[in-house]
């Protein structure tokens, strides 16, 4: 544990300039009420003690199977849901306890691209108004100015300026996602949390939207927190990757390290599941037994021990902490615990 703290402190020294977002021990518990008096009987631990750091201009991929808390983590970081505990430091400022208008002021700098392009656009609003809404929220620009800005944005994300007058239901999923991206870009944010931005789209459209996101990153100096469950998509997009399992971060590291030499047994199982197009290459596929345990009643010790192929008796007792095992690769697993 002491080693962990030191590591964090060391990072803090060069926090100021390079780091855009730092998340410390973020927790999000949903209380469960039951019985006649609606007593609290427990918590669903959607996000349990995760920490991560995003440097300016990089893309951090967050992967994990459905229900592991990736989206909740993304939303909690952006203060769209309230955290139970932990700190979110954005651009040198703690935004965990900001409220009301102060928080709204800060929201300009971090935006979100949502998962479901069919649900994330107000069906009653014209595309032009959907895209100029963020600008109107923060500035008093004239109607004409707004319109030219929105038209530029629409064209930049691959739509047509004339689409200004259309309504969301007249677009396909990929086009709607472009509208969502234009909306997130409108305020020129520093950070964009992309919450499974392509998982609702066809594979052919996915690549277009992903490439658009990549182009925009260079052009607008964006930092991405890219949440996805598709490993090849994350591999394509990210510089660094964090692997989540049942609300915990089990491994963090550079993209190549994670894909070539995964350390955590869960990451190993995940990467072994990536399909290999070359039929001549035989891959050892690790198949995990059983189901993901309920986050309401997570296993003791290491949350993964119930499905881990190499579990040891002590895994049931000790909660492993993230430790730097190799340079730029941290893993939370007792296998790498030297004590």
């Amino acid at each position: 544990m002491s080693q962990q703290v030191q590591l964090d402190e060391k990072k803090d020294i060069h926090v100021d300039k390079e780091v855009l977002l730092e998340v410390r021990n973020l927790k999000k518990y949903y209380p469960v009420h039951a019985g006649f008096f609606k007593r609290k009987v427990g918590d669903v631990k959607a996000v349990d003690d995760i920490s991560l750091t995003l440097k300016k201009g990089e893309t951090f991929g967050l992967v994990g199977e459905s229900g592991c808390g990736k989206s909740t983590a993304g939303r909690t970081i952006l203060r769209l849901t309230e955290s139970t505990d932990g700190q979110v430091i954005f651009d040198g400022k703690d935004i965990t306890n900001l409220s009301g208008s102060l928080l709204r002021e800060k929201r300009q700098d971090f935006q979100m691209v949502f998962q479901d392009p069919y649900a994330s656009l107000n069906p009653k609003m014209m595309v032009g108004h959907l895209v100029d809404e963020p600008i109107r929220n923060y500035t008093n620009k004239s109607h004409k100015q707004l319109k030219t800005e929105v038209e530029e944005l629409l064209e930049r994300v691959g739509l047509r300026a004339e689409d200004y007058f259309k309504y969301p239901h007249e677009f396909s999923g990929g086009q709607r996602q472009r509208i969502g991206i234009a909306r997130a870009l409108a305020l020129n944010p520093k950070l964009i949390v992309a919450d499974e931005p392509v998982s609702a789209l066809d594979v052919s459209i996915q690549s277009q939207v992903l490439n658009l996101l990549k182009e925009l990153q260079g052009e607008f100096d964006l930092t991405y927190l890219f949440i996805a469950h598709d490993l090849s998509v994350v591999k394509h997009m990210s510089d660094r990757i964090g692997v989540m399992y049942l609300g915990h971060m089990v491994e963090v590291g550079d993209k190549d390290a994670i894909y070539k030499e995964p350390l955590h047994p869960y990451t190993q199982a995940l990467t072994s599941a990536i399909p290999e197009p070359d039929p001549l290459i035989k891959k050892e596929r690790i198949i995990l037994e059983g189901d993901v345990p309920s986050p309401q009643n997570p296993p003791t010790g290491c949350v993964f021990h119930t499905r881990c192929p190499v579990a040891m008796p002590k895994c049931k007792e000790i909660i492993p902490q993230l430790k730097e095992v190799r340079p730029n690769q941290q893993v939370a697993c007792l296998l790498y615990d030297k004590e």
């Binding site: 979100m112 107000n122 963020p134």
Partner: peptide, 25 residues
């Protein structure tokens, strides 16, 4: 619906979220 969350994330005031996003729907 996610569009309500989306409206909050682009900095729309609660009163406006209700008037412009919820009410029309």
């Amino acid at each position: 619906n996610e569009y309500i969350l989306s409206a909050i994330s682009i900095g729309t005031k609660p009163s406006k979220v209700m008037l412009k996003h919820l009410l029309p729907n």
